[in-house]
């Protein structure tokens, strides 16, 4: 955390994002929100609840179902002076918006030689566990981190969610903000100070430990903290939430590995060519000789997300897989 925390309150991650949006709408008239059902109805996940009533239809806009069109409009509005927060609802729908993300939002600042900035936040919920099946459950953060030209944040705690959303809105660069569905109800202490932010690109050591470093994202942060308590006495687990996947604060991770000599990366995304691989590669490059055991990956075994709970539970990585990974190398 970058500031001295004076006061906190216990709220859910969903409420933390709502607060961040509200505070930024109040702070800066250039902040606008649009997406499907973000207005009068307050969003399918209630993220924008109350904002339409308080800030009006000009600044909190219901958009037609046209993801590529309204992400592109976000690019154009950002390039001409606004700070839009565009809502994609489910991250799977990035498929519909991909052109404007891949070729405009993330390239304009560079290909125009730095002439204009694109202070655009695109947010979406991602992740499985609700039997929502293949097109409402996928994680996309690895794919987004691979595009180049944008920042990608994946908060694992309510405080990180609030602080990162505020930083994302204030950033002059495009930011993808990914909310894991399983974290929305997670409750924790969040600073009440309106100036509280979390810098994009700083990992957080959520729990100190001596034996194994667990780099956990999104819902795995809560899972890891619970598991660490459970294993205390047998294994001392250090839990790090990278919070931002791009930029990636590998230094904090490498410092931890230098102490523990053991690394587990727990992230819900597909295992091949992924976030896990990037984190482990950077540890290999910067702390290879400190590793006592092979780094372990906990993630999705490369299938689409199935609907039936028996199937989804089979392939969805969770606490059991994480515990096995820790025990393999502890």
């Amino acid at each position: 955390m970058s500031q001295t925390i004076t006061q906190t309150e216990t709220i859910s991650l969903r409420e933390a994002i709502n607060q961040a949006l509200r505070e930024e709408l109040e702070r800066d008239d250039d902040v606008v929100i649009w997406g499907e059902d973000v207005g009068e109805s307050g969003h399918v996940s209630n993220i924008t609840e109350g904002l339409y009533d308080d800030f009006g239809a000009e600044r909190v806009r219901d958009a037609p179902l046209a993801e590529n069109g309204f992400v592109g409009a976000g690019v154009g509005a950002a390039a001409t002076g606004l700070r839009p927060v565009v809502d994609i609802m489910y991250a799977d729908f990035f498929g519909v918006a991909c052109e404007q993300m891949l070729n405009q939002m993330t390239k304009m600042h560079y290909m125009f030689g730095g002439q204009l900035t694109v202070p655009l936040v695109v947010r979406a919920s991602e992740g499985a566990g609700l039997s929502a099946a293949a097109q409402h459950s996928k994680t996309t953060h690895t794919f987004l981190s691979h595009m180049t030209g944008s920042k990608v944040v994946t908060p694992g705690t309510p405080a990180a969610a609030k602080g990162l959303m505020k930083s994302a809105i204030r950033s002059d660069d495009p930011v993808f903000f990914l909310e894991n569905k399983r974290t929305y109800t997670m409750k924790d202490e969040v600073p009440t100070d309106e100036d509280f932010t979390v810098p994009i690109g700083e990992a957080s050591v959520e729990r100190a430990g001596e034996d194994v470093t667990v780099v956990a994202t999104q819902a795995f942060v809560g899972d890891s903290l619970e598991l660490a308590e459970q294993l205390e006495g047998d294994v001392s687990v250090e839990v790090i939430d990278p919070r931002s996947l791009y930029p990636l604060d590998h230094e904090t991770i490498a410092e931890s590995v230098k102490k523990t000599g053991r690394l587990v990366v727990a992230d819900e995304s597909p295992l091949s060519y992924g976030t896990h691989a990037e984190i482990i590669s950077r540890v290999n490059e910067t702390a290879f000789y400190y590793l006592d055991k092979p780094p372990q990956r906990v993630g999705w075994p490369d299938t689409p997300v199935p609907s039936a709970p028996t199937l989804e539970n089979e392939v969805m990585p969770g606490r059991d897989e994480l515990q096995r990974a820790i025990e393999r190398i502890a």
Partner: peptide
């Protein structure tokens, strides 16, 4: 370089102008 991509961007500039 991508055919049609300017139209959404101009539309977004239109939001800035309207506000």
């Amino acid at each position: 370089g991508v055919v049609g991509s300017g139209a959404p961007i101009a539309t977004g500039a239109g939001v800035t102008k309207k506000l």
